[in-house]
């Protein structure tokens, strides 16, 4: 026995349920959480867009300042000239090797966009204390690494405007739509190959690259 108010409420609930199921709920339907204030957003809004530098903060940095900061904060892992200590990534060189048998992918040889370098250093480096550098120092480090790769001159000053204008050598080599599937094999079921042609061309046997998969964790290094 429903009075009209109850019926209206049921109807509203039913409509809301349908709306949600159909994925058409009004913004704020649940009303959970709180509206983010401009100050709160500003604190976390660190992303910089790679292709046009949207989001780059105010500030600037020179190659000279970058040289100093890099030797203090980065060289222990990446080497003074970005050559990379041990297995830490190389940040410079490899230009023109992308078609080689052993290509060397670095900021200079591979990265398509300079603002991405600012964004990455700012969000993720130095490895042991990420996101602790000032915007000026991140600009300076960006300038230094671009300079190491002979992409900008010694007197280059990195800032909001200049970074987006830097054209990276590999910029036009990226295709941003996925052309896969790469293969369209047919699922043959019998006599799919001449058994005489089935030959092992490589084996992991005896390569001594495989850590143990029993016992304690292996610390092996290749011989």
């Amino acid at each position: 026995m429903f009075n009209s108010r109850n019926r209206a409420m049921l109807l509203a609930a039913a409509v809301a349920a349908v709306a949600t199921a159909a994925g058409a709920a009004e913004p704020g339907y649940y009303g959970y959480g709180k509206i983010a204030s401009p100050e709160e957003i500003a604190g976390w809004n660190i992303d910089v867009r790679g292709d046009d530098g949207a989001g780059l903060p105010p500030g600037s940095g020179t190659v000279a300042r970058g040289t100093e900061v890099f030797s203090e904060q980065c060289a222990s892992c990446h080497g003074t000239f970005g050559e990379g200590e041990g297995r830490f990534p190389k940040l410079a060189g490899g230009m023109g090797t992308l078609k080689h048998d052993r290509p060397e992918l670095t900021v200079g040889s591979y990265w398509p966009f300079a603002p991405t370098l600012f964004d990455y250093i700012n969000r993720a480096m130095p490895m042991q204390a990420p996101h602790t550098l000032s915007a000026d120092d991140v600009y300076a480090l960006t300038a230094y690494i671009l300079n190491l790769n002979d992409i900008v001159p010694n007197e280059f000053v990195a800032d909001q405007d200049s970074l987006a204008k830097v054209k990276m050598p590999n910029r036009d080599s990226f295709v941003w739509t996925d052309p896969r599937p790469d293969t369209m094999a047919k699922p043959c079921m019998s006599a799919c190959a001449n058994p005489a042609d089935v030959k092992i061309v490589s084996t992991a046997e005896g390569r001594d690259l495989t850590p143990r998969t029993t016992g304690p964790l292996d610390t092996m290094q290749p011989k």
């Binding site: 992308l98 290509p103 080599s173 990226f174």
Partner: peptide, 24 residues
């Protein structure tokens, strides 16, 4: 538009034999 972050440019892209690379 997309952001082209380091993880979708320097990494998680596919270098092809002709020297071009696939992203996304």
């Amino acid at each position: 538009r997309p952001w082209y972050s380091r993880e979708e440019t320097s990494k998680y892209t596919d270098l092809m034999p002709d020297g071009t690379s696939r992203g996304f």
